[in-house]
Structures are given as structure tokens and as C-alpha cells.
Amino acid sequence: MSANKPTFVYVTYIAASPERVWEALTQSEMSEKYWFGYRVDASGKAGERMTAVNPAGRLAHDDPIIESDPPRKLVYGWKPLYRDMPEERPSRVTFLLEPFKGQTRLTVTHDEFDEGSKIFGMISNGWPAVLSSLKSFLETGRGLESSWGEAERKRAGEA
């Protein structure tokens, strides 16, 4: 791997089974409760599409599902469809779900960025907020209200 190509890695431990975490990552009725209103549907098989609809009802993602091995591994492409996004080639998101004592260790790796990617900076801020909210949602039934999420909702309405 080239040292110049940025890779984002985030690990979180969640008091929920891999099956529950999988549902939350792939089903839009669940994602909208923690992913700051985004309806993310990644329930298809490899070769099908991952779609994300923002809180304003606009399509924010329409990316290929590269690998789907429930409840262990999910890989999809990543190219935001907003017009104000920098023009960059699609990157790649990998979710790895590992069981440990009835809990899940979730590792998210976001890579395949070009050197100097601007989108990389955005996702580096975004994933900790989304994945913290996912953990809260699965452990307490409630996602987080964060200023990052607020900004994202506002942006979604405008973009």
C-alpha cells in the first residue's frame, strides 16, 4: 500500500450481536434513527446497489455492493452524489463485524482514495459521529444528536 494514499480506520465495540449490528448497517428503517436521518439500504447481495437517501429525500449515494457476507463482512463503493462535492473517483468502505462475548467489535476501513483527497477529510470527521451514534442507538435505543449531524442535515436539505 502506498504511504501517500490515505486510509481511515475506526474500531468500536458495541454491546449487541453481529446480527443486530448488521441490520443497523444495512436497513434503512434503522439507519435513519442513528445516521442523522439518512436512509441507507445496503441489504442487497454483491453486485446489487447500496443507496442512501438524505433527510430531504434526495439520493445521496447509489454505489455498488462489492461483498456481502452477513453478519461478518460488508464492502461497498463510496461516491457522494452531491453536486458540491469535489470530483474524485469512488472510494471503498469495508465493515468487519467480529463477535466477542455477545458483543461486536466493528472495524470500519475507508480506503481507495487518491493522494490529497478532499473527501477523505470529510469522511474522517463523519465516521466517528455516525459510528458513535450507531453504538448509542444499539445500546440505548436512541441515536445521538450531534452538531456534526445537525450540520449534515442542514447540508442535505441544501445540496
Partner: peptide
């Protein structure tokens, strides 16, 4: 750090730590 801080978050939000190795 991810294990420690995930468990810290659970303690504050749910009152229960995680079983982490």
C-alpha cells in the same frame, strides 16, 4: 484505546461497561 473508550461511552450512557479484552 478503541476498547477502553467504547467501554467508557457505554458506562456513561448505559451504566454498564463492556466485556473487553
Amino acid at each position: 484505546w478503541p476498547a477502553i473508550l467504547s467501554s467508557l461511552k457505554s458506562v456513561l450512557e448505559t451504566g454498564k461497561p463492556l466485556a473487553v479484552k
